[in-house]
Design a protein around this nucleic acid. Sequence first.
DNA 1: TAGCGCTGGTCTCTTTTTGAGACCATAACC
DNA 2: GGTTATGGTCTCAAAAAGAGACCAGCGCTA
Lengths: 136, 136
Amino acid sequence: MDSKIFNLKSKLEVYKAMTGGGNFGDCPVRDVIQGISGKWSSLLVMALAEKPYRFGELRRLVPDISQRMLTQTLYDLQRDGYVHREVFPTKPPSVEYSLTDLGRSMFAPLQLLIQWAELNHDAVREARAAFDAAQA
Amino acid sequence: MDSKIFNLKSKLEVYKAMTGGGNFGDCPVRDVIQGISGKWSSLLVMALAEKPYRFGELRRLVPDISQRMLTQTLYDLQRDGYVHREVFPTKPPSVEYSLTDLGRSMFAPLQLLIQWAELNHDAVREARAAFDAAQA
DNA sequence: TAGCGCTGGTCTCTTTTTGAGACCATAACC
DNA sequence: GGTTATGGTCTCAAAAAGAGACCAGCGCTA
């Protein structure tokens, strides 16, 4: 009932006003963040932010993803309203995925995080190396 | 082989294997993003951005996290250079976790994503409901 | 002095998620 | 008739996450 996560949220009202009433499953941050923090979500959103892609194109674009996870991640992104899925009646039928307005809206802040990642990749790699060296 | 955190080492081994194999090197974004896109990472970084916390405080603050995952997530965040871990020789010894400069730097864009999540939580929930209704 | 709790973890066991890869129906093309 | 391409699904193994017992050391206190 009185989740401490809500307390955390309260303490973080430095950034926003406190919202009343909340319970266990109602940690908005985690609810939303978890939907886009999957292993492949950000990568796929990043790709679709560039332009719409078809299933096979995405598969070739992100070769490390398994077909199964590509299907599932796109399904989840579609369910959360970030991605639009359209089937074209060609033969064989092709399926195009594109960002919705909500998806584009979400990509704006996500892109900043991605830019940070690109800029600071070396720093993170160095931190890892230093940490592993210290542990050995 | 690191005897410490015996049960938690597999992720580390994967990291090492992939770093050695060069797979992650091909995608800096995924390399970094994956480190902060874990289920609990953003929540813990968010908490530590407010002020340093001790292990037990974090556990009480985020009661849904298991002690095991709290240990591991903090370990991973420390390894990537976002979090500093300091042991104080009190009795019993207490451990304080705080953000590093790199962590604070990363939190800046992360915070924007969190703010987006708070603002658009309702839109995402509605999208989910609509999708589920359409599927039924 | 024998229990009890607090500290920050670790260990084992179970469940959920992810990964690897085979399989499928369709139809055009060779 | 076999090959290619489409966008998937299905199964099984491996990895990650969750639940909860356990641990050592010290202070308290009964």
